[in-house]
Nucleic acid binder design. Structure first.
Lengths: 193, 193
DNA sequence: AGCCCATTAGTCATACTTGACTAATCAAGA
DNA sequence: TCTTGATTAGTCAAGTATGACTAATGGGCT
């Protein structure tokens, strides 16, 4: 038999959107890019590619609907196998911890290559950004029925707040260390050791 | 003039590794996949592609070194322009907040599509995994000189702990709600409304 | 002597992602 | 009336990421 395709969180996202309600492409993209933008990030072309894969696998079906003289809509609906797949993907997703990889940590690793003052100033800017983000956190627009956006947003806010606290504490610690004799005397530019 | 290439955290990672010390390819990959695996994630083929791009842009240079009769080593070294680029990328990285997108939040959004008990059981498995990860957090092997792995690992641990706390609290709340009259009576399987 | 594994170097096909683009209809403002 | 922007459909080229693969050497084990 053919090797079973591997489905990821993008399939879960689309199946979830379609489980809530059959939709046509424009609606799907609009929904993802406007309503779910803080939780998910998928572009139009990616969505179409995934929808094609899901259709080819029989997880969704497509009907054409004509409204007036407008270009015909393709309405995507989830099938029974699709519901089963959605169920499995959802249960797995809920039960699994993802390996986090923060791009910001790359910089932290190499922080000692900058002069202390410069590094701390940069981290301070990061902290200011975080504060702004947390303060201006817009509450998501009200949503209908089964979609639990609040929970996901709440999670993001919680993690961001922890990030902020860690950063504030770390900056303080680094500053305290900076007043002591410099433990890294070679921190300035140093070509050809 | 040609459009300036966009450099990302992968370039930062490689430049950082080479700033610490000139290395040949095998060393670089070994270092990233063994020592930095908890902070960064870059595969061999990706590293070589990035090294090529950096070399084409004059950010690193390559010398051939022969050791015995072994296959010749290509030793990659950072150039002066490379150091400047590294400095800029590092300062930017430290000063910037990344938009986080957690795959796990996709599931949270659709949680109401599962029966409450099943969803809570799945989240409990996620929590157990998180606890294990936090408990078994291996301290990174000691590192030399300017590499500040501890800081990045500390950050990851802090965020993970916040994640764990949020999850524990959320599970409790969901369970409390579950004992009340079900606010989502259609939570069970419900084909064709 | 012979065999296997680690070291050292990459390459390549494949898959995934996305910015930019095309096309047509209709409502509303100028 | 004409133009513009939103609605609706996608496509395609170009870039990125990576699993799987090839090749050669040398040290150590049987």
């Amino acid at each position: 038999m053919p090797k079973t395709t591997t489905w990821d969180e993008r399939a879960l996202l689309l199946l979830g959107v379609l489980t809530t309600q059959s939709q046509h492409g424009y609606q799907i993209n609009d929904f993802i890019e406007n309503r779910l933008c803080r939780v998910a990030d998928m572009k139009k072309a990616t969505a179409y590619a995934q929808l094609d894969r899901l259709h080819a696998a029989g997880m969704i079906e497509i009907e054409i609907a004509q409204v007036g003289n407008r270009p015909p809509r393709k309405v995507y609906s989830i099938t029974e196998p699709g519901r089963a797949l959605f169920h499995d993907l959802l249960a797995t997703n809920l039960a699994t911890v993802e390996a986090p990889a923060f791009a910001g940590d790359i910089g932290l690793m190499f922080m000692n290559h900058l002069p202390r003052a410069e590094a701390i100033a940069a981290l301070r800017r990061r902290l200011a950004q975080l504060d702004t983000l947390i303060a201006n956190q817009p509450m998501p627009p009200p949503h209908g029925g089964k979609l639990n956006l609040d929970l996901a947003v709440d999670h993001i806010v919680a993690v961001r707040r922890a990030d902020r606290d860690w950063l504030a504490t770390t900056i303080d610690r680094l500053e305290a260390e900076a007043t002591l004799p410099n433990p890294h005397p070679q921190a300035a530019a140093n070509p050809l050791s």
